[in-house]
Computed example of a mutant assay.
Amino acid sequence: MNTRLLDTLRRKNKQIAGAVELALRTIMPSAARPSGGLSRRSAVLALGAFLGWSLSAGVSAETLLPEGAAPASPAPLAAEFAQQVASRLLIPEDEQLAYAARLQDALAAAQVTLAAPQFIVLVDRSPNVQAALLYWGSERGWQFVGASPVSTGLPGRYEHFLTPLGVFDHSLANPDFRAEGTKNKLGFRGYGVKGRRVYDFGWIESPRGWGDGSMGKLRLQMHSTDPVLAEPRLGTAQSEGCVRIPATLNDFIDRHGLIDEDYDRALAEGDKLWVLRKDRTPVSSPGRYLVVVDTQREARPDWSPLPVTRKPAAKSKPKPAAKSAAKPATP
């Protein structure tokens, strides 16, 4: 490539980056942005990926989308998510971009570099949000797949932890298992109905939600929950520190193997893994990470409403039979 053409490409790339930053400030007023320190580069990358520009940190001809090129195609499995996951949150585009930037910042802080585009589950533990967002992509750009309400740790009770923040690896170092569907002494099925997958991330340091709030060890898991007593409460903090997700989201992640990168590697090496379902249709680009953030929102956004809990209808009591008239005494 000659020097003149390369200089032209560089100028265009800088112009696009400036336009992206201006658009970001326009469509994302400060009041609408989640609190916390989003890096400008992450925000620009997220918006660039959304518009199909896929900007990189460097200035090279390979990162520039040719003029007139079609915008990026929808994220893999986005249509399937809308059809197969019953509990969904309709997140505005500006919020999708903000969370994509926050996801990238969390990966960078954890020094996680992705070798290829993949699926990642991002959870916002803010009490005013309580949501899981599914993304596909890499540091070159993220595409939003879908979102659902969740329940994270509820402090203030004994043995209740705050769900820890950070990037958590899903690997065979902490093997998954499946729910037995049994109830505890309170009649609660903590892992949901029989057969639901329990995603295990191992022992993690996390703040205790009781006593002096010192650090303790939590077995961090992501799993379904009691379909009657707890799933209707998703969208509010309820758990002992784990991430409770809707049953249909659990099934979706499980069936498509969205965070099974390490499990697929073991299968390719000849291992037999009982926890993997026989009817799974794994994606070609699985991931392996759960990312937990906290936007610390002071108000609940419209797209994440409080769950509506309805009391069972009161059973109507049968009306007492009318008393028959007293018979006159016989002489």
Rank of each mutant, 00 (worst) to 15 (best):
V243Y: 12
E95Y: 02
L107T: 03
K315W: 04
L186Y: 13
A101E: 05
F119Q: 04
E159R: 14
W53P: 00
Q130L: 04
E298K: 15
A43D: 09
A23D: 08
G18M: 09
L97R: 15
Y135F: 14
G48H: 11
A237G: 02
V129G: 10
A72N: 07
V291Y: 13
Y191Q: 03
W53C: 04
P286F: 06
A326C: 10
T3D: 15
R140D: 10
A237V: 00
V198Y: 09
T3Y: 14
K311Q: 12
I27L: 14
G195E: 09
P331G: 13
K12R: 15
S324I: 01
P227V: 03
I16D: 13
S54W: 15
T248V: 02
S206A: 15
L218A: 06
R140Q: 13
K217M: 07
G195S: 09
I245C: 08
F161I: 01
A86V: 06
A329G: 09
L38M: 12
W142V: 00
P227M: 08
S39V: 02
K183S: 12
L162C: 05
R219T: 00
F201Y: 11
H256P: 00
D176I: 00
L134P: 02
G257M: 01
R244K: 13
A78W: 10
D302V: 03
A237M: 06
V129N: 11
E93F: 06
E269T: 01
A86D: 12
L64C: 02
L249G: 09
S171Y: 03
T63R: 15
V291T: 05
